[in-house]
């Protein structure tokens, strides 16, 4: 099931070729159509050539075909680039020859062409200075980044480590005082108490869970429950 084709009005033109050149100059349109037709002709030609070729007798593996395609694509790319460069050079030569011929015929002071060329030269100068400025700025930025990056990473890390080692040293000094027996005894007792309390904490938690009681209703119980997760070694 197909819907009727919707025709477009490209750029407000009705139908095919415009008789009045609205936005596009007649000359430009003709040149564009010429390029189009050339391209389409090329496509048809290549299809015809492709159909004339015999298919190869042996069956190639898919991998081989892929590799071959890649190779051919690369060749095409290279050929295309070379062709485009040569075309460009040719166009430039043609353009400069035409310009030269034109300039010999006209009055150099009042022509539109001279004005255009002067304008183009001005713009070029402007572009070059802006580009130079932006390159210089980029260079400076890169230099700053190059300097900053190792500082940022290494220096800050090492500084922090230094600070931490200093603090640890202070702690170690204090720790050395701890080796007296009295403190050791106190600490042992403390440890035992802490362990017992931790076990009680966990057992109580599990008891509560198992009993399915609503412990929040009793404020004292609630207070106790909220303490159960406390890590006693920290106080």
């Amino acid at each position: 099931m197909e819907k009727q084709p919707t025709d477009s009005e490209g750029e407000g033109e009705e139908g095919g070729q415009p008789q009045e050149a609205n936005k596009e100059d007649h000359m430009t349109l003709l040149l564009r159509l010429r390029a189009q037709t050339k391209q389409q002709l090329l496509e048809y030609k290549s299809m015809v050539d492709a159909n004339e070729e015999k298919t190869p007798e042996q069956i190639m593996q898919e991998e081989q075909i892929k590799a071959k395609i890649e190779g051919l694509e690369n060749e095409v790319e290279e050929a295309k680039t070379a062709f485009e460069m040569k075309n460009l050079a040719l166009d430039r030569m043609q353009l400069s020859a035409a310009l030269k011929n034109n300039l010999e015929k006209i009055d150099t002071k009042t022509s539109l062409l001279m004005d255009d060329m002067k304008h183009v030269l001005e713009l070029n100068k402007l572009i070059m200075t802006s580009q130079q400025e932006s390159w210089d700025l980029e260079e400076k930025l890169l230099d700053i980044r190059k300097k900053r990056l190792p500082e940022l990473k290494q220096a800050s890390e090492s500084k922090l480590l230094e600070i931490q080692t200093e603090k640890n040293k202070q702690k170690d000094d204090l720790d050395n005082m701890e080796n007296s027996d009295k403190i050791k005894a106190i600490r042992q007792n403390l440890q035992r108490e802490i362990q017992i309390t931790t076990v009680i904490q966990n057992v109580f938690q599990n008891l509560l869970l198992g009993s399915k009681a609503n412990w929040a209703e009793n404020p004292a119980l609630k207070k106790t429950v909220l303490q159960l997760e406390k890590n006693l070694t920290m106080i």
Partner: peptide
């Protein structure tokens, strides 16, 4: 678009 477009829906 510089060319004329036809859109067919199916």
């Amino acid at each position: 678009c510089a060319s004329q477009l036809n859109v067919h829906l199916a």
